[in-house]
Amino acid sequence: MILIAWCCLLTLLPLVDLANERVDHPVEIVTGNWETIGSFALSFVVIARLWLTHHRMLAHVARYTNGLVLWNMAWLFTAVLLPFPTELVSQYGSDTFTMAFYMGTVLASSICLSAMTAVIYRSPDIQDPENPLDVWHLANGVTTTALIAVALVLALVVPGVNYFALFLLVLTPVILRSWARART
């Protein structure tokens, strides 16, 4: 949790630097820096969602394995890295490389979370016996990861879509409900 708070702080620092700009009225700082403010807001939401997913997933773990710890370290790397592409987003907007780097980092983070979920799901011996991980968690992770991958491809292939492609993530619960109905 401390690491995630630190990542959020790192995404906030460029906003703090804006307060040092000399302008006639402070509102000019806000109105003239929508890209920086927007990239902070986007990354805060992304980091919060990644952390919540991580937190909920680890609530099912009673003990750790080397594989789980390694995937967790990879996930932590993506969380620590995220403020850097966020700053690039504030500076370069929807530049193709910037967009691919930002969304690729989010995708890598989601892949790590899905891999951790798979490790936990496939290892009942490490799960909390009173709170076992069910297949729904695995399906949620895989669905989210797949939608981020589709969003990345869509953002790169269709001009003008850019970061709006991440709104595909709102389909996660719809897909999961359809999957649950198909299973019963």
Rank of each mutant, 00 (worst) to 15 (best):
I2E: 03
I4F: 06
P14S: 07
V16C: 02
D17N: 15
L18K: 03
H25K: 01
V27G: 08
T31G: 08
T31I: 09
S43D: 13
V46I: 15
I47E: 00
I47R: 00
T53S: 09
H54P: 08
H54W: 10
H55P: 07
A59E: 08
V61C: 08
G67M: 10
V69D: 06
L76D: 10
V80A: 09
L81K: 09
P83S: 06
P85H: 02
E87F: 07
L88I: 05
Q91I: 03
Q91S: 12
Y92G: 01
G93M: 06
G93C: 09
T98Y: 03
T98G: 02
G104S: 06
V106W: 00
L107K: 01
A108W: 08
S110A: 15
I111E: 06
S114Q: 09
S114N: 04
Y121N: 08
P124R: 11
Q127K: 14
N131R: 14
V135A: 04
H137D: 07
V142F: 10
T143P: 00
A146W: 05
A151E: 04
V153N: 07
L154V: 12
G160W: 04
V161C: 01
N162T: 12
Y163P: 00
F167E: 11
V170L: 15
L176P: 07
W179C: 04
W179A: 10
